[in-house]
Nucleic acid binder design. Structure first.
Lengths: 202, 202
DNA sequence: GTCTATAGCCCGATAGAC
DNA sequence: GTCTATCGGGCTATAGAC
């Protein structure tokens, strides 16, 4: 039989409770979105009570802000022909990484205005960088659609759980999207002749 | 000064009120999603009272089902090399059409389980048809990603209002996505040499 | 038939007992 | 510090007045 656990300082107990609350909140926000996740449910999942959650985090909104976060995109720099590969590497990272904080944000983006603004701002920032690097007069549209495609892929895999996508490895998704992203960025896919992309439009 | 309006039969008055409720519901569900749209707000926007809305439609759930509907996808048939063009034409139709019923469904799909199932089912059905027509061993993944891309484009334009996308004409979006969809469907884009798509992956 | 009033429930947030 | 009890408010849905 185990001995009595070593006594925990109050600070340590508090730290652990906070961590449990944060983890529970992240999971519930990711699974159910902002509106359908209640402070009460978070407290229950964390093994505490609603009052404590409020005391530690102030409000539901602040708790959400603490756990729903978009991983910052790595800056898109370098020559135009590398832009697509940088974006694909970034997508691969997102698909491979721990997404629960991101999913909390994405799950809520269509119904919680703050989350919508956050996602929009993140996409817009990357979009600007991509647009600046792409040699096309509709570069903003192309960059925006690349962002939309990335978003669609993550939604399809992790939120809608589309079959064939939900269980796909990150590498496989990146592989399938590679020529698509290259085509939109108007860069030649790896080892394909460059004059290809010049006259795709009739 | 106008004469007294011609008297309306009760049936006619009821029909018009129902129509106003449906229109208001469609718009509010599309703008705010299922949870944040209240029967009270629908009634107010339609110029009636909540009780009447409940009386006519039974429940909030039934009202939602009446207005949030996905336009049925046209079947994807024909030879493999035409699949991409059929899908692009279908996307163009969606982007051009009146979307408010569709947007009501899409806005709610991440947070309202019924809406999520509905969207998933619609994408899955089209996905099956596309997968059957594509000559690749990862056809299900490719078909799923095409669905995800389509979804991402509509979300980016009509729900997230990404700049450069929100005001883009349907034709322009289709044009930019054309080579991308062809690449994923492994069909040759219009008038481009066929051996192109054979060795895109290193 | 149309609308008002309210029941019944769950929520976020707060106050105060221990 | 931790937790319980409750407040005030919004909601869907219902019952009943006109």
């Amino acid at each position: 039989m185990p001995d009595e656990p070593p006594p925990l300082s109050r600070a340590e107990r508090r730290r652990r409770t906070e961590a449990r609350i944060l983890e529970a909140a992240r999971e519930l926000f990711a699974r159910s979105g902002y509106d359908r996740t209640t402070i009460r449910a978070v407290a229950a999942a964390a093994g505490t009570d609603p009052g404590l959650v409020m005391r530690y985090f102030g409000s539901k909104e602040e708790l959400f802000a603490r756990v729903a976060e978009l991983a910052p995109d790595q800056p898109v720099t370098g020559p135009a022909e590398d832009v697509a590969e940088v974006l694909l590497a970034s997508l691969g990272d997102k698909l491979r990484g721990d997404l629960s904080g991101t999913l909390a944000m994405l799950r809520s983006m269509l119904t919680h205005p703050d989350a919508g603004r956050e996602v929009r701002a993140a996409i817009t920032e990357q979009q600007r960088q991509v647009a600046a690097a792409i040699p096309a007069d509709d570069a903003v549209l192309r960059a925006g659609l690349i962002g939309a495609i990335t978003l669609g892929a993550i939604i399809g895999r992790d939120l809608l759980h589309l079959e064939g996508v939900r269980d796909a490895k990150a590498e496989d998704i990146v592989e399938v999207l590679r020529p698509a992203i290259h085509a939109i960025a108007q860069s030649a896919p790896a080892h394909a002749p460059a004059e290809l992309t010049a006259d795709l439009a009739p």
